[in-house]
């Protein structure tokens, strides 16, 4: 998937209608990242049913929340007997990362005339997989078609994975632990390679490596805010690098 399956911008691409762009986004459901996300949802369905969550409740969670870590925290809180307020706080903390992710994504996805009103519903579909794929693919899509392209991708990903969860319940599918272990490993392995490939410039590589190295350190010191602080610390390291690189290129 690192090499775009979209044709380069100078071929007949610009002649596609908005609906064809929607379909082009939707067709990414047949890509490796989408398949990996589906396997992650197979694992989630197993986790949900183990914790006494019904099929309808689990599918409702996937469609209405659309962030796998938030779903896992939610089920953890439910089985821990948390109050609704304590659950909301736990889920909210696990979802803060979506704020900088969405903020960084908006300038990529908006067209010259896109309004906030159109961006707000689309923001629901931004989660890690859609973010990584979008960052990689959107630069090959004409600006005014990006939002519709991402709508096709996001809506299809959400719908299909909601159905995947229902299907696992329906089949009451279960696998040996080795298969689950291999499935769970797909997600980090895929993100590792594709996040590197999505970079516009070196600053993203610096941010990625700092995040990977800082996380275990921060996790041992402040486990409750590990992800958030990793984001800030990684951001600081990256900006220090950007300033340093700019200074060096000016002096030479």
């Amino acid at each position: 998937m690192s090499d775009s399956d979209l044709a380069p911008e100078d071929t007949q691409m610009t002649e596609r209608t908005p609906f064809q762009w929607f379909l082009a986004g939707a067709s990414l459901i047949a890509s490796i990242p989408a398949l990996i996300l589906m396997t992650a949802h197979v694992g989630f369905a197993g986790f949900a049913s183990e914790n006494g969550v019904s099929m309808l409740q689990a599918t409702f969670m996937v469609a209405s929340i659309w962030a796998l870590p938030a779903n896992i925290v939610l089920i953890g809180a439910i089985s821990g007997g948390y109050s609704i307020v304590a659950t909301a706080i736990a889920v909210g903390l696990s979802s803060i990362r979506l704020m900088p992710m969405v903020a960084a994504f908006i300038p990529e996805v908006r067209g010259p005339k896109t309004r906030k009103r159109a961006l707000l519903p689309i923001a629901h579909f931004i989660a890690i997989t859609a973010w990584v794929v979008g960052m990689e693919k959107l630069k090959h899509v004409p600006r005014d078609m990006r939002l519709i392209f991402f709508a096709g991708l996001g809506i299809t990903l959400t719908t299909v994975n909601t159905l995947v969860v229902a299907m696992v319940y329906w089949l009451s599918a279960s696998f040996p632990p080795l298969v689950f272990a291999a499935l769970f490993f797909l997600t980090p392995m895929y993100f590792l390679a594709s996040l590197w490939g999505s970079a516009h410039d070196r600053s993203v590589h610096v941010a990625m490596v700092s995040g990977l190295l800082l996380f275990p350190l921060i996790h041992t010191i402040v486990p409750a805010y590990d992800l958030l602080l990793t984001g800030f610390a990684g951001g600081l390291v990256t900006m220090a690098y950007v300033r340093f690189a700019a200074m060096r290129s000016r002096s030479s």
């Binding site: 960084a104 993203v204 610096v206 700092s210 984001g231 610390a233 990684g234 990256t238 950007v242």
Partner: peptide
């Protein structure tokens, strides 16, 4: 940079 570090 913040978003990328978070995802990492």
């Amino acid at each position: 940079a913040v978003a990328t570090s978070l995802v990492a």
